[in-house]
């Protein structure tokens, strides 16, 4: 990694932390609070690419484990990873990698719909695929219940995917950072 890559990694780790500083928004009707933080892996993948994005989120998770209060609401420590939500958090680096990889692969032919699909795949499908069984294991509930509980966050995720598509497209025009694979 060049110096510039290291700086990028640190910036996106810091960005993910900064997203946790936004006050959570409570969705109307459903009433589930959503935080902007899970946009971190999506933005890192879509803007910094696979390698740097994954490294940024891995760094973020390591710092959280080290006890820095970087998770939304000023939480931190190994308890985050060991707790029920740990599966989601641990998947963030993987999500960033997959999103970045697919963005780089299709860079020349990206449409808003394709981008949304990539973000849903990496940022939602993949993270839930590990996050839900993790809840089931840690909390000893069966998979179906864990899945239903997690489904409350899907509308929030949909909003985030749309936001990231808009942001990533605008940033790419203003300051291109990715190279096609």
């Amino acid at each position: 990694m060049s110096t510039r890559d290291i700086v990028f990694v640190a910036l996106f780790a810091a960005l993910t932390a900064a997203l946790g500083l936004f006050p959570p928004v409570t969705l109307p009707v459903i009433g589930v609070p959503i935080t902007a933080q899970s946009m971190g892996p999506m933005l890192a993948g879509a803007i910094a690419g696979a390698r740097r994005g994954a490294a940024a989120l891995a760094l973020f998770v390591v710092l959280v484990c080290a006890g820095l209060p970087l998770m939304a609401g000023g939480r931190g420590g190994l308890g985050i990873v060991m707790g029920p939500g740990g599966g989601f958090v641990l998947m963030w680096p993987v999500a960033a990698f997959v999103i970045g990889f697919l963005y780089e692969r299709g860079l020349e032919t990206l449409t808003a719909w394709k981008e949304a699909l990539i973000l849903v795949l990496g940022g939602v499908v993949l993270t839930y695929a590990v996050g839900i069984p993790w809840i089931a294991a840690v909390a000893r509930v069966d998979l179906a219940k864990a899945a239903i509980g997690s489904a409350w966050f899907l509308p929030g995720d949909a909003v985030k995917v749309v936001l990231v598509v808009l942001v990533a497209r605008a940033v790419r025009r203003a300051y291109p950072t990715l190279r096609p694979r």
Binding site: M1, I6, V7, V9, A10, L11, A13, A14, L15, A17, A18, A55, L59, F60, V62, L63, L68, L70
Partner: peptide, 16 residues
């Protein structure tokens, strides 16, 4: 490099 990245992250959060 990990050490530099960690330090930079801590430096960037307040800047961000």
């Amino acid at each position: 490099k990990v050490g530099l990245a960690i330090a930079l992250t801590l430096r960037f959060i307040p800047v961000l």
